[in-house]
Design a protein around this nucleic acid. Structure first.
Length: 287
DNA sequence: TAGCATTAAATCAGCCAGCG
DNA sequence: CGCTGGCTGATTTAATGCTA
């Protein structure tokens, strides 16, 4: 996959994107591997390998993620029964659904619903706007107060970052924090374009101190001056947005980059918004 | 790409809690 | 006590992944 020609890669990416779009448009719809392969113009045999290589997860993983994301949203935002939501999400019964759901977010559907209903009482202090939005790229300069957060360092390829998040959510639940308000923040050290030197931590900010345990640590995210850009859309577009910020905006902005980590502040989550409605503030440190 | 191994999902049986 | 909804463990079945 690494040595693949760029044109081939683009072509493959387009074909695979047709499949993932169809999955997220209607996650509950059952289709055979042959159908999905046909949609991407691959033989079934090659399809799952190409899919996995391009997406970093199997077709089944994507379908499960789409279905459970849909279900999680329904749990958080409606009062319908777990069984109804399970059936609507494409599961044949509530049992299978409960099992898959627990595997996804580490808590049962009803616990999840209780947590997300209860978690509306805490908001981070908003960054103070120093300069208005840039005409070209909607970037504003903000002053951010320090944030104390629980961090879990991501290890492995960028594509598996969702697993680290799942690990941090699991820790959050296991630490008995279900029902407590929280605020997810991604912390990026170094340059994502370089394999070495780039580190990513999944973080959760809490209203008050809670002891860390296991691989989860407590850290103070340094405050100060940041250039803030609001990214709206699926998380897959964040890399390109950062690239644009560093590559296009920063050099012409007159600002100098600082060596504090860049931040991703998630203003909503896949549990309460569809992929195209995900709001993420991207903050790059400036002097 | 066949054939085997592994993994995930479905199914079934049964438990528990809440309620009339 | 029976009914209902929700959850789980064990087992079966199907899909997926790996290897040659």
């Amino acid at each position: 996959m690494k040595s693949m020609k760029q044109t081939t890669r683009n072509d493959y990416a387009r074909r695979i994107a047709r499949v993932t779009e169809a999955i997220f448009r209607d996650p509950a719809r059952a289709r055979s591997l042959e159908d999905w392969a046909a949609l991407a113009n691959f033989s079934p045999f090659h399809f799952h390998r190409i899919y996995r290589a391009m997406q970093g997860e199997s077709l089944a993983d994507t379908i499960r993620r789409a279905r459970l994301t849909l279900a999680a949203r329904a749990l958080a935002m409606s009062a319908r029964s777990v069984t109804d939501i399970a059936l609507e999400a494409g599961y044949e019964n509530a049992q299978s659904f409960a099992r898959a759901f627990r595997g996804f977010v580490a808590v049962s559907p009803t616990q999840f619903r209780a947590t997300h209903r209860a978690a509306a009482d805490f908001t981070l202090p908003s960054p103070v706007v120093v300069t208005r939005k840039d005409a070209a790229m909607n970037v504003e300069i903000v002053e951010l107060a320090p944030i104390r957060a629980h961090l879990l360092e991501h290890k492995g390829p960028v594509a598996s970052i969702p697993e680290t998040w799942a690990g941090l959510w699991r820790w959050h639940m296991q630490a008995g924090l279900a029902g407590r308000a929280l605020y997810p923040i991604g912390v990026c050290y170094g340059d994502p374009e370089e394999d070495c030197g780039f580190r990513y931590c999944a973080g959760l900010a809490f209203p008050d101190g809670v002891a860390a345990s296991g691989e989860v640590t407590i850290a103070d995210i340094v405050g100060g001056r940041y250039a803030s850009y609001r990214h709206v859309g699926p998380y897959s577009g964040i890399g390109a947005a950062f690239q644009k910020l560093y590559g296009e905006w920063l050099p012409t902005s007159g600002h100098e980059p600082d060596d504090r980590p860049a931040l991703e502040i998630y203003r909503n989550t896949p549990y309460d918004a569809p992929p195209e409605g995900l709001i993420t503030d991207l903050l790059i440190p400036v002097k």
